[in-house]
Amino acid sequence: MVTIADYRGKVKPDWCPGCGNFAQLSAISGALTDLKMDPKDTVVVSGIGCSSNMPEFINTYGFHGIHGRSLPVASAIKWANPKLNVICYGGDGDGFFEGTQHFFHTAKRNVDITYIVSDNQIFGLTTGQASPTSELGMKTKTTPDGNIEKPMNPLTLALTAGATFVARAFSGDAIHLKEVIKKGIEHRGFSFIDVFSPCVTYNKINTYDFFRKRVYKPEMDTKNFAKAYEMALQWGDKIPIGIFYDVQEESYEDRSPIIGSKSLIDQPLVQLKPEDLAEFL
């Protein structure tokens, strides 16, 4: 039987004590354990950032690539071997700045992977610069007079792109976080989970307290796109978390005549025969 200990990597996380990423490491490990998945069957793919160090700390297959590019890697791993459970993990800078186009198009394709973003509204690893989700007016190393860009909304972007599972969770609510991640993994198609993940070192605004005061878990009509979109726009004193949208559609793999039928990795290699060249005669 798989236990949570099976997922414990031999390298200890080097995140700052209190960092929101710890809760996500536990939640992912817990979700995989609850789902009785063998560690060998999961690949955690990430980019670069504090959060992206995740594959080093979890005992699955890990691919720690380059900044912003985890989603194409993860998609192709799934296409090569659909039996693998592919989790893509990274930061808000990684996913919503450097990798925005991949985020949009992977959602649009409905690739059957789970994408979890540790959204701390700041660049952590590079010691505190404004990110695409940093709040207007926020002072950071690169915005000493306050951020003059409005933050983007990852949820509405995912919905617009065509994601079939869109959710938000909070590192300060570990049980709920784990349940959302479980649902995301189980979902067939692209699941996107934006996680409020306080950076205790560089973000003094969006702290655990900030979110504890604001997050709430409304009942949501997860089959209704317009309602999901409306809920996703809610921001301010009350910020909803939970699953906003969850519908079943054919995944990219289902639609492909090549990978849908059988894993590429299991397909025998084509033996070229002289007849295959006849079109050139």
């Binding site: 691919f63 590019r69 192709a76 990978i259």
Partner: peptide, 28 residues
């Protein structure tokens, strides 16, 4: 279909090469 080759045009070349890396990593 004749050769069982999966051909994909993604959003850009950055994605393309990262996909090629991902597939090779997975053994294809």
């Amino acid at each position: 279909e004749q050769f069982g080759i999966f051909v994909k045009i993604p959003e850009d070349e950055i994605s393309a090469i990262n996909m090629a890396v991902g597939a090779n990593y997975a053994g294809v």
